[in-house]
Design a protein around this nucleic acid. Structure first.
Lengths: 346, 346
DNA sequence: TATTGTATTGTAACCGATTGCATTAACTTG
DNA sequence: CAAGTTAATGCAATCGGTTACAATACAATA
């Protein structure tokens, strides 16, 4: 019933069958205005009937466009990232673009390797959220020099010819800290990631601004830079337990890390939020299953993916003039839950 | 300093510069044995010097191979899936394959669309974990008919010409249930997913076998099929709270769902594990941050990704003869934590 | 020395779609 | 009716590697 090996139909086959030239067939399939409407219909019909598929390689070879976009993310396994990717996919799909996705696993080395692969695959554009330890931007400049647009999202790098889509991390950091202050916290520790990354640097700046607003002292020992892993969460808790003067508030730039830290603190006998109030970041599902539920910052992942992809494709089509001097900033929002509510004055 | 638009070097350029034929250059770059070692070195050096990159489209057009593999997963945002993908990526990278990744978002419709995209992109092979509601296998048969290998992992479909990589879900389900029984549970509810999916059907069968082993009655009302979402977790908890005769054990085929369910039960005043012992599935990070920590089944995601990819590439290279009559089965393991320990007899 | 073998390189025809530049037919217009 | 338009289609080169089939040179063998 099913043929074992169906032969691939080309425009030459169609041309021969319909007694036309390959050129006409090609133009018809691309809806070229010079081709007669009836001819187009005829060709389209036959193509459908025989299951014709355009050979993208021949096409790409000739046109020098691949209709493929590269996406490099630190990790796929975060709720945030996969939500971003879902948003990107939706838009890319609508515009007929494919996605080549890879993860750097937070290593600049792997990020470079991924970028090279993308480059060799001749992606039409690149969307990147950089790794923890990325210092150099060389591997992206390669693209820019060849006029392949590069767009950063979330974790961005500064380059005059690259766009960026972010949230206002400074404001989010400020809001989170301000909330803790409003709950009466006066000794707040901020646990953050690598400060070379804008997301962490900005949140920290927001943190500092909030403290400054209350004329509170800025103690650098209260800013702890970690890799925000689960293990880091454990260590922070242990470290706090050892401190002579304990903090009364914690602002941790990652939900999972915060959740683990909270758990260990609870085991050690600290009352959350009464002894220590905690705020996380990202609105990861874990924030809802820990007890008490974790106050956090909602991050519009899906929207970010859609926006980034729309911007990229707009730039590729030339339909949208991109102003790279300013990043696109999306709204985030503080979600207040039990882990930080000390006064029931909602 | 940086040129605006570097011209792309081709083998013809290299050939002209070195006074050789393009054929020789091509062979040299592919390490063809007929080419003199010195010539190869010469060409390789010049190629590196000028920054030559092979044009994959020309190559693919000629060889009819794309060196790209498609991966379709239900969702990217689970710890399990992204771990699998990391494993796949590692192997694929080593063998010079690219990955085209997309998510079906648990919908057969989107899965079909994704498959079509992959097909049109002419992937050399396809790795799939099917969506919740996938009934038909047509969209994969398309590949098989064109001799493009299809390999299922985790959520598999049955087809004589497709390989499969799974864990022994039946055994895992048995072990989980047996553990609950050993803890003294006698009225165990099993919350599972769509029973068309092997992973859920098999776990359920393991569940039933364990009950049968203790001569316990098989009550179908104690098997609840849901979408295993967070919302489902809430509903299950509500449902249990309404039951006249409460269960004393819960085996839920997903950690996040189990975590939420446990949380709501706790809120309603049930003691975990004393009133109700709970076992989840997947060893998701959430299983460690809930309290009590959740007993679960460790799923070797990374290994699964590596194994699946290795199998696929082996088949493509013809280096490995694949026996599709039997799936490849990886080891899983029950991880016992507080949510189910009633007797301190470890 | 003539012959055969071996190592190395070259020639040229692909792969399939695209597109600048004709070409042809049909239609206007003066 | 001749000249000029317009519409529709065809020709052939091109994109850059790959590879079957020579061709060449030189050494080994008879």
């Amino acid at each position: 019933m099913e043929r074992m090996m169906e032969k691939e139909i080309t425009i030459y086959d169609l041309a021969k069958i319909l007694a036309l030239s390959p050129a006409t067939v090609s133009r018809a399939l691309n809806d070229h205005p010079a081709i007669n409407v009836k001819t187009k219909a005829l060709i389209a019909e036959k193509a459908a009937e025989l299951g014709y598929r355009s050979n993208t390689f021949a096409s790409h070879l000739r046109t020098r466009k691949t209709n493929t976009l590269g996406v490099i993310v630190p990790r796929l396994n975060s709720n945030f990232m996969s939500t971003v990717l879902a948003g990107m996919e939706e838009v890319a799909n609508n515009f007929g673009y494919n996605l080549l996705i890879s993860q750097s696993l937070e290593s600049e080395l792997k990020e470079r390797a991924n970028a090279k692969t993308m480059f060799d695959s001749r992606v039409d554009g690149l969307l990147v959220s950089v790794a923890y330890d990325t210092d150099s931007i060389d591997h992206f400049v390669t693209f820019i020099n060849r006029n392949i647009p590069v767009l950063f999202f979330d974790r961005i790098m500064d380059h005059p010819r690259c766009g960026a889509v972010i949230i206002d991390n400074e404001q989010a950091g400020y809001d989170a800290t301000r909330h803790l202050l409003d709950q009466g916290c006066r000794r707040i520790i901020h646990v953050t990631g690598d400060l070379r990354r804008n997301v962490y640097a900005d949140r920290m700046n927001g943190f500092k601004r909030a403290l400054a607003g209350q004329n509170l002292p800025q103690d650098n020992r209260f800013i702890i830079s970690t890799d925000l892993s689960q293990e880091a969460g454990r260590q922070i808790a242990a470290q706090i337990d050892q401190m002579a003067e304990k903090p009364d508030g914690l602002f941790i730039a990652n939900d999972l890390c915060a959740a683990i830290c909270m758990q260990v603190l609870k085991e050690k006998g600290y009352a959350i939020p009464d002894d220590i109030a905690i705020v996380g970041f990202n609105n990861d599902p874990v924030s809802q299953v820990v007890s008490p539920q974790l106050t956090t910052v909602f991050y519009p992942g899906y929207q970010m993916g859609k926006t980034a992809m729309t911007t990229m494709i707009g730039q590729l089509n030339g339909t949208k003039l991109i102003d790279h001097s300013e990043p696109i900033i999306l709204r985030s929002e503080l979600i207040i839950r039990r882990s930080s509510i000390r006064f029931e004055n909602l």
